[in-house]
Design a protein around this nucleic acid. Structure first.
Length: 327
DNA sequence: AAACCGTCCAACCGCCCAGCC
DNA sequence: CGGCTGGGCGGTTGGACGGTT
């Protein structure tokens, strides 16, 4: 008997019989099928998936061929673990766009929307579930923004520093310049000067100082601008888009996204009379007004010391619990 | 060693939208 | 304008696999 595939749900019996009549295969792809698809696309290009499937001699739906190609067979598909930088990008972009996986995937070259979606569901939603809060709740978003993401950046910094000191021939393990197929540059510069930036239609830039200092909310300053302001750029700035704001002796970091369309509606952000977008979420749920000092709640800095993200998150859970208790 | 459990991820589904006739 | 088709999207499923009991 010809194997029709093992990924068949019970409720699809009728569909299955219909597809068997049409001799359509479902389930996991075989090596021969993969080769047939690859060869056909190499010779004829992609698109018109239904006719492509037929012309290539594949007993598959056009949709199935398209999915197999885009998510697995495409030569530029990146495989392997999601890196720290990618995690950071996913969190940031998801905070901004929600479950727009394909849009988020555009900013992670080589990653598919499916992969990102899987990452979100298996990692992020798991933690939300463990913390007994909704992944879309303000509480969890705050936790991501003020705890998880800064820690990711710290770990990126730490990794870069380690790499820089152990391998002088290589500028940085996380330095790269890539261009996705929409010509949106995504540049991570985490060289010895500890900058980290993402140019992706807009910019996302993290100042070095935040990574090395407290992340108590009262000490976090964020600035946003859509202007090409060189005059306001200090030595701590990272490009023409950002005018860093040094608030007294407070540390700051800069996140600027979507400068391309000058969108002032960047989530929690607000624009002041000078055109700068300031972080009006300084405390979306009163975090900052209480001047919580998360580092003080984290004596062992486990996020940095422990390489495993999921384990790191449990120090986060402890912090969040303290946060909850203080509310 | 076997059963159980949790995680990962490829593949599927239904829905929606744009373009064409 | 309405129907059809192709393509894309987010959500869901279930098999494989590794770790734990």
């Amino acid at each position: 008997m010809d194997v029709k595939g093992g990924v068949l749900s019970n409720q699809s019996t009728m569909i299955q019989s219909e597809e068997e009549d049409m001799d359509l295969r479902r389930g996991p792809w075989t090596v021969d099928e993969d080769l047939a698809l690859i060869n056909y696309i190499a010779n004829h290009g992609e698109g018109r998936w239904n006719s492509l499937a037929h012309s290539a001699g594949l007993k598959r739906t056009g949709k199935s061929c398209r999915l197999r190609w885009l998510n697995y067979l495409r030569p530029d598909v990146r495989r392997g673990n999601i890196t720290l930088e990618e995690q950071l990008l996913i969190l940031e972009l998801h905070a901004r766009w929600g479950n727009r996986w394909s849009k988020i995937a555009q900013y992670l070259p080589g990653r598919t929307d499916n992969e990102i979606k899987n990452y979100w569901r298996t990692r992020v939603q798991k933690h939300a579930k463990q913390l007994k809060c909704d992944v879309n709740s303000k509480q969890f978003k705050d936790a991501m923004r003020y705890l998880w993401m800064p820690r990711l950046v710290e770990r990126i910094q730490a990794a870069a520093t380690t790499t820089a000191t152990t391998d002088s021939s290589t500028p940085s393990a996380i330095t790269r310049n890539v261009t996705n197929n929409n010509n949106n540059n995504i540049t991570y510069n985490n060289l010895n000067n500890n900058n980290f930036e993402v140019h992706s239609g807009g910019n996302m830039m993290f100042s070095p100082s935040i990574m090395n200092n407290n992340f108590g909310c009262s000490q976090v300053k964020q600035s946003y601008t859509t202007e090409n302001s060189s005059a306001g750029t200090s030595s701590d700035s990272f490009g023409t888009y950002v005018s860093p704001v040094s608030d007294l002796n407070h540390d700051y970091y800069n996140v600027l996204l979507d400068s391309s369309n000058n969108n002032p509606n960047l989530g929690y952000y607000q624009q002041d009379h000078q055109g700068n977008f300031f972080d009006c979420i300084t405390s979306p749920s009163g975090l900052c007004s209480q001047e919580m000092d998360f580092q003080a709640m984290e004596p062992n800095n486990q996020w940095i010391q422990n390489e495993d993200t999921s384990n790191n998150f449990w120090s986060f859970e402890n912090m969040l619990q303290q946060f909850n208790d203080s509310m």
